[in-house]
Each structure stands twice: as structure tokens, then as C-alpha cells.
């Protein structure tokens, strides 16, 4: 049961609200006025028109890619931790042995079609060999486009 208010307390609250109400309304209005007169605060992107200059923010998670140094070499050791971390089994590491008999990366299979871009593989990688890139125009009409081999780049 609600607590009974005395008429004195009710009146005190009433007059208090007559003062605090307009103040809080003016506070709200000051925020919207600031936004209205500051067109720089607008966050909308005019996407197809500004495609050339559009820059995604750094936290954006696009498709997965291997981090390469200036020689085009990656640091992936084919340990397979990302493969086990992936909840959708989108990653398959096909390892081979090099001439010295050491385990190296053969093919890094990445299925974009089943990937949820959760970035768990990036967080689990102990060598910092992979990252999520900034590409977001990923759609395609051919399902083959979603089966990527990350360590085989075009033109190689």
C-alpha cells in the first residue's frame, strides 16, 4: 500500500516541482539547441556519394585478414587456436611441413558466409597474426566468393 502523504508534504512537493520542472526542461532544450546549431555533430554518412572518402572507425569489424609485414609475409604459425576459438567453424587451418620439417601454414581457409564477425579468433590469436579489416561491402551473388584463402592473395 502506498504511503499516505500529508497535504503539507504534497504542497511542498508541488511547489518544488514548479521550480525544478522548468529548469530540467531548459536543460533538455539546451542539449537539443546545441545539436541543432552544430551541424558538425551530425553522424549520418551519405554513403554511396561519399564512397571515396568514407572512413570506417577503427573498431569496425569487417572480414578477417592476416596481418602482413612489409615483405608480404605473415606471422601465422598454423597453431590452430583460432580454428578452435571459432564458434561457427568458419576457419580451417591446413598446415604443411616445410623443408626443415617444421609445421607452417599451408592454407588459411576462411568462410565469410558462416562468419558472424565476432572477432573471437582475433582475440584468441597468441601471435597477433590476424585482424578484422575495414571492408564492409562484402555482399556477392556468388557463394564461391565467400570461401576465402587468406594467405593466397590475388596476383600471386
Amino acid at each position: 500500500m502506498a504511503k499516505k502523504t500529508t497535504s503539507r508534504a504534497y504542497l511542498a512537493r508541488y511547489f518544488k516541482r514548479c521550480i525544478t520542472g522548468p529548469i530540467s526542461l531548459l536543460q533538455g532544450l539546451s542539449v537539443t539547441l546545441r545539436y541543432f546549431f552544430n551541424p558538425r555533430k551530425i553522424v549520418t554518412e551519405q554513403y554511396p556519394e561519399n564512397r571515396k572518402t568514407l572512413k570506417m572507425h577503427s573498431r569496425f569489424r569487417g572480414s578477417l585478414e592476416l596481418i602482413e609485414d612489409e615483405n608480404g609475409e605473415n606471422v601465422c604459425t598454423a597453431c590452430g587456436i583460432c580454428e578452435r576459438a571459432c564458434p561457427n567453424a568458419s576457419i580451417n587451418i591446413l598446415a604443411t611441413k616445410n623443408i626443415a620439417g617444421k609445421r607452417v601454414l599451408g592454407r588459411y581457409l576462411y568462410r565469410l558466409g558462416t562468419c558472424t564477425l565476432c572477432s573471437l579468433c582475433v582475440e584468441s590469436c597468441p601471435f597477433g597474426a590476424i585482424r578484422m579489416n575495414q571492408k564492409f561491402e562484402l555482399s556477392s551473388t556468388d557463394p564461391k566468393d565467400f570461401d576465402l584463402i587468406l594467405n593466397q592473395k590475388e596476383g600471386r
Binding site: 537539443t32 545539436y35 541543432f36 551541424p39 555533430k41 551530425i42 553522424v43 549520418t44 551519405q46
Partner: peptide
């Protein structure tokens, strides 16, 4: 337009 600019949007463009 006013609604859009209050909400940090551009509105019809």
C-alpha cells in the same frame, strides 16, 4: 529537417 538536426541526422537529402 528540424527533427533530423536535433537528433544528429541529416533528414531527407
Amino acid at each position: 529537417k528540424v527533427c533530423a538536426h536535433v537528433q544528429c541526422r541529416l533528414g531527407p537529402m
